[in-house]
């Protein structure tokens, strides 16, 4: 039997009229932004080249195959440099990010005014700028080479590690802190005994996670001259040696998958 509703009965709707209006407005703005953006991009595109893209792509693929296997021997040294850039850069970042995180966390920052704000500013600035841009900057300052790459990785990672670490510190349990303080420990000892053990697993996990990302990023720093396998990549692209390029891609893929596996294993072990 059908159910009838009286006139006075409230009618249930999912959203209020205001929310419906806002949703439509949101969609309208989104579509408008998209169309404008697309027109902007389209205006700057030479479409004749694009119609040619499929054949260009096919051509590219045919030149990439087969990969230049013999080239591998030349790539081992740049690959070693790439791994070192990622590893040493991560270690360097840890050295700076750890104290920074303690300065930035609400519960461990010293009482001096401005310290926390300064620490947060450093973290934000470091985090917002891609390691490739840091490399671009460093290459013009200290010259091309592996050192610029290490510093670029470190400069980017300080903010990443610092942010995750200070969040871990802020989430730590305050009860042991209270107990250690009550025994007459100094502020330094309190951080060492009450906070450090609590954040140790997070510390290990974050470090390895960032190392994994850094391996990936270190593969391209050579594009701007900051050492590693990217140097060979850009050199091969510039002379259109696509067989070499595909060989480099394969090597990068293998390295990245390996580092991802290591990172996942370590993170599973510490948590």
């Amino acid at each position: 039997m059908p159910v009838y509703f009286d006139d006075g009965q409230p009618v249930w709707r999912r959203r209020s009229p205001r929310a419906v209006l806002l949703t439509w407005l949101g969609w309208f703005v989104a579509v408008a932004v998209l169309v404008t953006s697309w027109m902007f991009v389209s205006e700057r595109t030479i479409w004749i080249f694009v119609t040619d893209a499929p054949s260009q792509g096919a051509d590219l693929v045919s030149r990439m195959l087969p990969p230049d296997w013999a080239y591998t021997a030349t790539l081992l040294r740049p690959l070693w440099d790439t791994i070192n850039i990622a590893t040493l850069g991560t270690l360097l970042a840890l050295v700076f990010a750890t104290p920074l995180a303690f300065l930035a966390a609400r519960n461990t920052t010293p009482a001096l005014p401005g310290v926390r704000a300064a620490a947060l500013l450093i973290i934000v600035a470091s985090r917002s700028i891609n390691s490739l841009i840091w490399a671009l900057l460093l290459v013009t300052i200290i010259g091309p080479g592996v050192l610029a790459g290490i510093l670029a990785i470190a400069l980017r990672s300080i903010g990443f590690i610092g942010k995750l670490l200070y969040e871990a510190i802020e989430e730590s349990d305050h009860r042991p802190v209270e107990a250690i303080v009550a025994s007459g420990a100094s502020p330094g000892q309190m951080r060492l005994y009450a906070i450090a053990p609590q954040i140790a697993p997070a510390f290990a996990g974050i470090s390895v996670y960032r190392w994994d990302i850094n391996i990936r990023e270190a593969t391209i720093l050579g594009l701007v001259g900051a050492g590693g396998i990217g140097l060979e990549l850009i050199a091969s692209v510039n002379v259109l040696a696509w067989g070499r390029v595909s060989m480099i891609f394969l090597l990068i893929l293998a390295t990245v998958l390996l580092s991802e596996w290591v990172s996942a294993r370590v993170r599973a072990a510490v948590t």
Partner: peptide, 16 residues
């Protein structure tokens, strides 16, 4: 504070 020992409700040990 060294002269004053304290025992807590939820033990407040450092777990790790």
């Amino acid at each position: 504070r060294r002269r004053i020992g304290m025992i807590f409700q939820e033990f407040a040990l450092v777990d790790r």
